[in-house]
């Protein structure tokens, strides 16, 4: 057989393999219908992760406590049944039957105020995080979707926000409103969180921008709006949402710090842990326990959110997949 002939045969064979294999049954039907999504496999790993379990338990207890606070608290937060025991020499009523943590310097039940305080703390923390998330989403989406000059301008604004010490910025915002209240607290804290979310979202939007499926969508003529909101944003949200659980811990601590400094809600009829801590400092040498309890609550809750956020981040990290 001549070399020429052999080559032609080979080519025919090649053409045949490419052309006649159509009757092979569709092996494509092996889809894992009960297959695992990213969320599904992350959940499987989380369920066995003690760090996550501890964090989630603390978080769940805290949230339940905050929701049902008025039902759980044995006494009202404003009534002062122990006022009779408040004397100049002994301003803090001792723990006693029915009042396991004793009272504060106005004769109110400390345990009830702690329980009711969880609600304020949660509201401030969650609202501040949500507001920061919303602001970050707007800025990050703008920068990530348009790129180019828009990106440059938006990110420089974010850089400026990021360069300010967060507590200082929060102080400035709180003072700007003159009369501090729960709302100045929320605004102050959320302004600090915006750049964190914006940077994070912009980063993952940019990596989506150059991804194959965005290129494929562009190759089909899909417009910028759907590309941004259907193809880029949903795929970029993962790290941002995980960051939100971590930021929640930071928000709670920051809210407590600002309240402690007197920039929180001045009305102590609705208790808040940072505010309770702030009021306790004058009496610290006589009754350290009234500072210890709210401080301990803040630490435990922040710890719980951090544990949960960290383990979520780890579980959803694509590098840990498969």
């Amino acid at each position: 057989m001549s070399p020429m002939q052999r080559k032609k045969d080979r080519i025919d064979a090649l053409a045949a393999t490419a052309g006649t294999a159509g009757d092979i049954p569709d092996a494509g039907h092996v889809s894992e219908s009960g297959g695992l999504s990213l969320i599904g496999s992350a959940w499987l790993r989380l369920r066995r992760n003690p760090v996550f379990l501890v964090g989630a338990t603390i978080t769940a207890l805290f949230v339940l406590l905050a929701i049902f606070a008025p039902l759980i608290a044995p006494h009202s937060g404003t009534a002062n049944p122990l006022i009779g025991q408040v004397t100049t020499n002994h301003p803090i009523p001792n723990p006693q039957s029915g009042y396991p943590l004793g009272g504060d310097n106005q004769g109110r039940d400390l345990l009830s105020r702690l329980i009711l305080g969880s609600r304020q703390t949660l509201i401030v923390g969650v609202l501040a995080t949500l507001a920061g998330l919303a602001g970050g989403l707007v800025l990050g989406t703008l920068a990530g979707s348009f790129g180019g000059r828009v990106d440059t301008v938006v990110m420089r604004i974010v850089d400026v926000m990021l360069s300010l010490p967060s507590l200082l910025l929060a102080l400035a915002v709180a003072t700007l409103f003159g009369q501090p209240s729960q709302w100045t607290l929320i605004i102050a804290i959320s302004v600090v969180q915006i750049p964190i979310f914006a940077r994070l979202l912009r980063g993952s939007m940019l990596s989506q921008r150059s991804s194959d499926h965005v290129l494929a969508a562009r190759a089909l003529g899909v417009k910028r709006g759907p590309i941004t909101f259907r193809h880029m944003l949903p795929n970029s949200l993962g790290p941002v949402l995980v960051q939100a659980t971590l930021v929640l811990a930071v928000s709670i601590i920051e809210a407590a710090s600002l309240s402690f400094l007197g920039l929180g809600n001045p009305d102590d009829s609705s208790p808040e842990w940072g505010q309770m801590l702030g009021r306790a400092q004058d009496l610290f040498d006589i009754a350290p326990h009234i500072a210890f309890w709210p401080a301990g609550c803040i630490v435990v809750v922040a710890f719980g959110f951090t544990l949960m956020g960290e383990s979520l981040r780890e579980a959803l990290d694509p590098r840990n997949r498969r």
Partner: peptide
């Protein structure tokens, strides 16, 4: 694009929007 000329790519998994 998509109406007169269209294109298909190499890696079908990464070319589809996962969500």
């Amino acid at each position: 694009r998509g109406r007169d000329v269209a294109m298909i790519f190499q890696d079908p998994l990464s070319s589809l929007n996962p969500v």
